[in-house]
Amino acid sequence: MLEARIEQASVLKRVIEAIKDLVPDCNFDCNDTGIALQAMDNSHVALVAMLLRADGFSPYRCDRNIALGINLNSLTKVLRCAQNEDMITLKADDAPDSLNLVFENTENERISEYDIKLMDIDQEHLGIPDTEYSASITLPTAEFQRICRDLSQLSESVAIEATKEGVKFSCSGDIGNGSVTLRTHQNVDKPELSTKVDLTEPVNLTFSLKYLVNFCKASSLSQTVTLSLSNEVPLLVEYKMDNGYVRFYLAPKIDE
């Protein structure tokens, strides 16, 4: 059986909020390393991979592989019943038809308990190869969100060009064109506001802004985001957490 207690409901709330619009129904794969998820969006253009490592829970117990097929809108409704500072305990049997959630508030001794019905979800699991990316760009999450939001006003797609000097996001649309360039720099006082580019060769790829804007719903998970690019492979957008990650993969636009 699964028993996993997380100290702060807000962590789980933010993770689900980050992915629910992209993948409304998905399997949470639980085993002794933690709770993982991999799912493609309906159009098969983007893929979400999430991991909450076992050491982010206390206690964590899961002796065999358990798949929890969950509708994330249902889970969101139940998580709204938890306060951010509540502890959440997740419980499920070995062959579960429901997931049990207990919210505990130690301050006012309030305990609430919910069960969500599970679904059978037939999900294709993709093998994601370990990739040495040509460019990895780490930038403030809020900056990436702003760039995506700004450029999406002008165009459906954005070209991301990484060079030694920095990264340039540019777009063109019916009303005109626009670009934002971030030069590599280090903020000593606030390292999370730095922009860093690790580059083995320059890259220039085009992506759908609609998806990137959607990925930015994960902005509350981390102060920085890493974009990893190589020519002709999907973009990796990674939000790291203390005990896990949310990764989004997005297929590039291709000239035909």
Binding site: H44, A46, G127, V233, P234, Y249, L250, K253, D255
Partner: peptide
């Protein structure tokens, strides 16, 4: 024209 690729093609072939 620019077409969006489908993600699974990259990972199955990759």
């Amino acid at each position: 024209k620019i077409f969006q690729g489908q993600i699974f093609k990259f990972f199955l072939e990759g």
